[in-house]
Write a protein that binds this DNA or RNA. Sequence first.
DNA 1: TATTGTTATACTCTATAACTATA
DNA 2: TATAGTTATAGAGTATAACAATA
Lengths: 155, 155
Amino acid sequence: MRATAEQAAREVLDVAPLVVREIRGEMRRHRSCEVNVPQFRTLAYLDRYPGASLSEVADHIGLTLPSMSRLVDGLVDRKLVTRQSQAQDRRRITLALTSRGRASLESANEMTEAYLAEKLAALPEAECAHIVRAMQALRDIMHGESRVQAHAAES
Amino acid sequence: MRATAEQAAREVLDVAPLVVREIRGEMRRHRSCEVNVPQFRTLAYLDRYPGASLSEVADHIGLTLPSMSRLVDGLVDRKLVTRQSQAQDRRRITLALTSRGRASLESANEMTEAYLAEKLAALPEAECAHIVRAMQALRDIMHGESRVQAHAAES
DNA sequence: TATTGTTATACTCTATAACTATA
DNA sequence: TATAGTTATAGAGTATAACAATA
C-alpha cells in the first residue's frame, strides 16, 4: 500500500504542473480574461467567503501578506474587489467581490472550464468520475497545517 | 455525460493550482533543492529524452523559445545540463543531463515525492489507485495539439 | 527565405525588510 | 508589545521584438 501512495505521488508531481501550465496558457490566450491564476483563485475564494480578511486569503492562496496586498491592489484598482477596514478592529480589512468582480470570475470560470471540459469530453464518463473523485481526495489532503492558521485567523 | 466532464473540469481547475502551490512551496522550503518547478520539469524531460533540442523542450514545458533559452542558460551555468550544436544542422542544439544534473533531478524528485507520498498515505489505498488512474487520464488528454508540433520537431 | 536559437528590453510576480496604524 | 496590513526594494521568471547564424 505504501507503493501506491508513492506511485500516486510520482504521477501527481508529473501531471499537476502540466495541467496548470495549460490552464495558465489558456487564460493568457484569451485577451478578454483580465486575471491570472492567483487572481482568479482569489476571486473564487472571495466568492465563497465574502468578507474575508487579507490574512485569510493570503493563507488560502499561499502567498505572503505583502504579495497578497499587491495582488489585491490590482484587483481593487480594476474595481473587481472592495477593500474596507472593519469597524470593530480597524487593523483588519474586509474584502469582497464587486459585481464586476463576480462577472469577471464567472467569465474566467466559464472560459477555462469549457476549455478543460472539451478536453475531458474525450474520456469515457467513468474516467471523468474518477477524476472528480481523485481531485476531491487531493483537495482533502492538501493544506495539512495551513488550514489551522487560516482557522485561527478567522476567530 | 456532459455534466460529468464539466464537473471534472471544475474540480481540476480548483485543485490543480492548489497542488502545484504546495509542490512549489515544498521545493522552496528545502534549501538543498536548487531547481524550481519548470527547471525540474526540464531536467525530467531531458532524463527521458536525452539529446532533445531547445524547441522540443520549450514545447513540452510550455515556455517560449527565449524563456527556455534563459532557463537552459541557468542549468548550463550550474553544470546540470550540457548544450552543444548538432553536426548535421548547426542551428539546432542538443541538450543532455550531466551527472550532476541527474543527481539534482533525483534529489528533487525523491524529496518532493516523499512529501506528496506522506500526504497521500493518509488516504486508503483504493483512493491512491484512483489518483494514479486520474493522473494518467489527464496526462493523455493534455497536450492536444502541442504533441504534434513536438513530434514534427523530432523528425 | 525559412528556421533555430540568442540577445535586448521590459513587465509581472513574489519575497524579505522596514514601516504604520491599531489593539 | 503584538498584530494586520502597507510600502520599499530587489530578484526571479517570462514575454515580445530584434537579431544572428544556418539551412
